[in-house]
Write a protein that binds this DNA or RNA. Structure first.
Lengths: 347, 347
DNA sequence: GGCACTTCCGGTAACGTTCCCGGAAATCGC
DNA sequence: GCGATTTCCGGGAACGTTACCGGAAGTGCC
């Protein structure tokens, strides 16, 4: 339980000055091979481990990085965290992880903690304008997630929602579905607007009137999806109903609502999710979905951060492509006239 | 992009010495109210934020804590992380989070990083004997999870597997099931032994011969559970089959296997999980399971760590009780003679 | 053998903070 | 109004590390 050995102890043990010990323990070339070995052996013997607090103090580089996400418990963000963790770790640094719960004050407090810990940089999913303060301190940071779009001037990484929506729509079309019904997120969310806009564009490109689109609002939860699907089915009681959900939780809720209503998936309804959460693989039927590259998002954010610190300025925003995961929740309607609104009564 | 203001800048701005500024900014009483306000105002104006690196250096308290878990991507461990994060945050400190991937070398490297960062303490799910080294450095730490049982001398927190198993068994009994079939984890795992032992005890207490127990080995994965359930059904092709699975992923795999075999749950088979993963709530039928108090585990581990640091020595091992979550995967066989082996052919 | 040059090493300062100590001023007791 | 006490503040050192500077040997060359 004695104090931890310092470089001075090592130097004494090796019979050299602390300067020489420091040189030997770093990669400095100004040191004799023999003395380097002697110092290394002394360090090993003393159980010496470099004090990063002191290093950070002297060099200004703490070896610490920060990550502020809404909730580490959310599988998407956990993947992001893992990706960032891996890259940061590969560079010999450590990651401080915080959960903001989408709360302004919590975020502010976490950002302050990060600054006080003298992190070398941070990855943040912004929930407010706190990040502006952050930049003002001259701290390098990279934004992540769809909410980062509000800050076009700072480097950020996100999944390519437009590409993802097109991917889903095209896949639905190829299976013989027309423009699907939509269960969207809350009107306040940026991602919702982008989602909807892309669907509209996709419709127009195919001469489908977007006004014919069937949409319901939800709140990104299982229960919300469940309720929205019930409303949807009430509006389209007959015919095959294809639904494109704004996330997987909604889709899972919709799946339950359909089954409760006696509408079997994928026979009577087709449900397409968006996210790629693990739970989607275990549902019945397993959920066909569009997977956001969560871990890669975290990796790329960390990589961008290192680039920025190294003086390689980053582009405004990078979009990473999403991937379709075909499982069992979509019906193959065969070669059938597409471009019709799903569930529309054919006269 | 200028340098960050130091306490000396604040002192100069307030027209006092840095000693006085330091006193004013901490909770020291040896300072006049007026000058304290003056310093506080100067600090605010300068945008001063205490440098925790320097504080840690001087005081030996870095304000940093470590968490080493197998995988932050695993929902159980994410919950643990969240619990620890919350408690650490409430105490004004920050948490360094690492994923070991159950790998010896990665764990060793993460523990070294923690020591070099001069964390004040760590919470570790041990995958090897690396933690022994850790203790030797005099660093306070708390173990977490079932693998911590190998270290009876160091404080650790885990879920009460024996209580959980009894809870499941009793519940099954109350629903008219006899001793259920078991899908267990790998033979190398400690948790498996404890699980099996408790089932045996439970049987003996009720004059059931444990030899009659139907068991299959698995590997804690969805695919493993799927395969094990197929073997189980081949051994008991008729009658209601109740299965107690060692974790939820296994249970979800078993659910799929049953459905594929045309055995409907909960009509023909009853499946009980163990863990409380989110995916269990979204399956069909939703999985009845025994929930480990993951977040509370993380909270209690952090609390125990603070206690230990504060000089309040911790007990060897603490077991936290698990909770039954009733959903839809268990049949109610009614008041029927219990204590029979589920699925056994009645002659 | 003298000079320039390289190689290697030790001393010192600095990073930003807090703690200890001593001293000046103010207050108190009589 | 004078010593004793309290209140408040400044100076200096220390935490562990690395960067810089200067110097002492050793080497090569003519």
């Amino acid at each position: 339980m004695g104090k931890r050995p310092t470089i001075i102890d090592v130097a004494r043990l090796a019979g050299v000055s602390k300067s020489t010990a420091a040189r030997a323990l770093t990669d400095s070339s100004d040191v004799n091979e023999a003395t380097r070995d002697k110092v290394r052996e002394a360090a090993r013997q003393a159980g010496y481990e470099r004090n990063h607090l002191a290093v950070g103090m002297r060099s200004g580089r703490s070896g610490l990085f920060g990550l502020v996400i809404p909730d580490i418990t959310n599988p998407f963000w956990a993947e992001v965290a893992r990706g960032a963790q891996d890259i940061v770790g590969e560079n010999g640094a450590s990651l401080l992880v915080f959960s903001s719960d989408w709360d302004h004050d919590r975020e502010a407090s976490h950002l302050r903690a990060l600054r006080q810990a003298r992190v070398e940089g941070a990855i943040v999913n912004p929930v407010s304008d706190n990040v502006d303060d952050f930049g003002r301190f001259g701290l390098p940071f990279v934004l992540i997630g769809s909410s980062a779009e509000r800050f076009p001037d700072t480097p950020s990484i996100g999944s390519d929602i437009a590409q993802a929506v097109r991917l889903g729509l095209d896949h639905l079309n190829s299976l013989g579905h027309g423009a699907p019904a939509l269960i969207l997120g809350p009107r306040s969310r940026l991602a919702r607007a982008r989602f909807l806009r892309t669907v509209h564009e996709h419709c127009l490109e195919r001469d489908v009137d977007p006004a014919v689109l069937l949409t319901e609002d939800s709140d990104y939860t299982f229960e919300g999806g469940h309720a929205a699907m019930q409303r949807l089915m009430a509006r389209r009681p007959v015919g095959h109903l294809a639904v494109f959900c704004a996330n997987d939780l909604i889709a899972l809720g919709a799946l339950l609502a359909a089954r409760e209503a006696g509408r079997e998936c994928p026979r009577d309804v087709s449900i397409l999710g968006f996210d790629g959460v693990p739970a989607g693989a275990f549902s019945w039927p397993a959920l066909t979905t569009i997977e956001k590259p969560a871990r890669e998002l975290g990796r790329r954010a960390a990589l961008a951060l290192f680039d920025e610190i190294a003086g390689r300025p980053q582009a405004g925003r990078t979009y990473l492509p999403c991937r379709l995961i075909e499982r069992g929740s979509l019906a193959d309607l065969g070669a059938q006239t597409p471009l019709r609104v799903a569930g529309a009564v054919r006269s």
